[in-house]
Amino acid sequence: MTASLQFAPRTTVAEVEEGRSFSPRFGPDGLIPCVVSDAGRDDVLMVGYMNREALARTIETGIAHYWSRSRQTLWSKGATSGPTQRVVEMRIDDDQDALWIRVEVAGSGAS
């Protein structure tokens, strides 16, 4: 699924900060932080982390995927608990080292 999605290479500071290429900067641990807020209320729901695969799956499916640092595995919110996070909007900061996604929470127990 994720083999087709490639992120742009990080070239110059000007291209990263002011260009049109999407070239996220993953940290030395291979992760990028992601602030998640409710699209309807703008309440912060969580801060998670994504690796390349989680970010690619999120973009491809429209459902938020994360990397669990404690379990060392890819996961999708709601896969076991019910409520899922459908991405409404995704933004990245100017130097492309942090994400913000707005989601709609749907499923059992969602409010």
Score class of each variant (00 low, 15 high):
residue 57 R to Q: 14
residue 33 P to H: 10
residue 108 S to F: 03
residue 20 R to S: 11
residue 76 S to N: 06
residue 57 R to V: 01
residue 100 W to C: 05
residue 29 D to V: 01
residue 87 V to H: 08
residue 20 R to E: 05
residue 28 P to S: 15
residue 59 I to D: 05
residue 94 D to R: 13
residue 44 V to E: 11
residue 59 I to F: 06
residue 101 I to R: 02
residue 56 A to Q: 15
residue 93 D to A: 05
residue 77 K to G: 03
residue 109 G to I: 08
residue 46 M to Q: 04
residue 81 S to H: 02
residue 93 D to M: 10
residue 89 E to N: 09
residue 85 Q to L: 12
residue 54 A to N: 00
residue 84 T to S: 11
residue 11 T to L: 07
residue 75 W to S: 09
residue 59 I to A: 08
residue 73 T to F: 04
residue 68 S to K: 14
residue 25 R to G: 10
residue 45 L to F: 06
residue 100 W to D: 01
residue 74 L to Q: 13
residue 39 A to T: 01
residue 100 W to L: 15
residue 25 R to S: 12
residue 71 R to G: 02
residue 86 R to W: 04
residue 78 G to Y: 05
residue 59 I to R: 01
residue 20 R to V: 11
residue 42 D to Q: 14
residue 96 Q to I: 08
residue 56 A to C: 10
residue 39 A to L: 03
residue 28 P to E: 15
residue 12 T to Q: 11
residue 101 I to L: 15
residue 35 V to Y: 04
residue 5 L to M: 14
residue 54 A to V: 05
residue 84 T to E: 12
residue 70 S to A: 12
residue 56 A to K: 15
residue 24 P to I: 02
residue 29 D to C: 00
residue 31 L to P: 02
residue 66 Y to T: 03
residue 43 D to A: 12
residue 46 M to K: 04
residue 104 E to H: 11
residue 34 C to D: 03
residue 87 V to Y: 01
residue 108 S to M: 05
residue 10 R to A: 15
residue 19 G to D: 05
residue 105 V to N: 03
residue 84 T to N: 02
residue 47 V to D: 00
residue 96 Q to E: 12
residue 29 D to N: 10
residue 34 C to L: 13
residue 48 G to S: 14
residue 71 R to V: 06
residue 94 D to P: 00
residue 33 P to F: 01
residue 1 M to Q: 12
residue 7 F to W: 10
residue 42 D to S: 13
residue 75 W to E: 09
residue 36 V to Y: 04
residue 8 A to G: 08
residue 37 S to L: 09
residue 83 P to Q: 05
residue 13 V to A: 13
residue 106 A to W: 01
residue 63 I to T: 06
residue 36 V to T: 03
residue 14 A to N: 10
residue 90 M to K: 05
residue 88 V to A: 09
residue 78 G to T: 10
residue 81 S to N: 11
residue 33 P to M: 11
residue 79 A to M: 11
residue 22 F to E: 02
residue 70 S to V: 05
residue 90 M to S: 12
residue 18 E to G: 04
residue 69 R to Y: 06
residue 39 A to F: 06
residue 70 S to N: 10
residue 27 G to K: 00
residue 57 R to D: 10
residue 75 W to L: 05
residue 3 A to L: 12
residue 99 L to E: 03
residue 55 L to Q: 09
residue 44 V to M: 14
residue 93 D to L: 12
residue 78 G to K: 05
residue 104 E to T: 08
residue 67 W to F: 15
residue 70 S to C: 13
residue 18 E to H: 13
residue 42 D to K: 11
residue 49 Y to L: 06
residue 111 S to D: 14
residue 4 S to I: 08
residue 40 G to Q: 10
residue 102 R to D: 07
residue 101 I to N: 00
residue 32 I to H: 03
residue 38 D to A: 03
residue 59 I to N: 04
residue 12 T to P: 10
residue 55 L to Y: 08
residue 97 D to L: 01
residue 109 G to K: 10
residue 18 E to T: 01
residue 52 R to Q: 14
residue 45 L to Y: 02
residue 74 L to A: 09
residue 10 R to N: 13
residue 84 T to P: 00
residue 26 F to C: 09
residue 28 P to D: 15
residue 53 E to S: 13
residue 48 G to M: 00
residue 66 Y to D: 00
residue 81 S to C: 00
residue 77 K to Q: 10
residue 49 Y to I: 04
residue 5 L to T: 11
residue 85 Q to A: 13
residue 52 R to C: 05
residue 67 W to C: 00
residue 14 A to K: 11
